[in-house]
Amino acid sequence: MKTARFKLWRGERGEGDFVEYETKITEGMVVLDAVLQIQAEQANDLACRWNCKAGKCGSCSAEVNGMPKLMCMTRLNSLPMDKPVTVEPMRAFPSIRDLATDVSWNYGVKEKIRPFAPREPDAEDGTWRMSQKDVDRVQEFRKCIECFLCQDVCHVLRDHHMHEDFIGPRFLVYAAALEMHPLDTDDRLKDLKDDSNIGLCNITKCCTKVCPEHITITDNAIIPLKERVVDEFYDPVKKFLKLFRRK
């Protein structure tokens, strides 16, 4: 039976180290399979999150050989197996234990964003009409599984720890989905400028690269929002012209 070596970060509240495990591997295995097998056979109390094991729930985010990944979608045959595979928790969030991190900050951020506020229904039966063409871009953003890998890799959060000032790519995508929702009537541009500090993003596109749902975070969500903020607050000519346009 083929085996492979894994170095899993074990510890609590940031204090800990890598522990090496060896486990058998079979065809098609993903990193999560190996971690769960180690948990079941050698380390029953190994803390890690997972749910769907199919890339749909965004629970098993971790850093595999230093790269932010969903463990359930990372095939072992995509990794060099001649040395141990390292698995460690996301670094942009406080460590709880082993691979589990405290991601509660994200939930707090979302609550502060103004919720969806639809226009009056289009039809008498209380329904709306939207064309597929108009919902395509919002549907892209709504694919987000909230794995927070984009947050993990965003240098504003990861390196500069500006969690108090910046909402991160996930919530810029969330704001974009609301702002570009054909039915929404609210306006979040001022919040995006002043509270979310969208300006802190300098478009290095790291978030887009790690998104397991392949959402074009920077180009389709963040840049258009930045443009809208600029249009609204920093361009006197456009601001003047806007008086004659719909929102």
Partner: peptide, 17 residues
């Protein structure tokens, strides 16, 4: 329909339903 009022974005028919 209530989900749509809460922000769900379903795929659409050609006439927008």
């Amino acid at each position: 329909r209530e989900l749509e009022a809460w922000g769900a974005v379903f795929d659409r028919t050609p006439d927008g339903k």
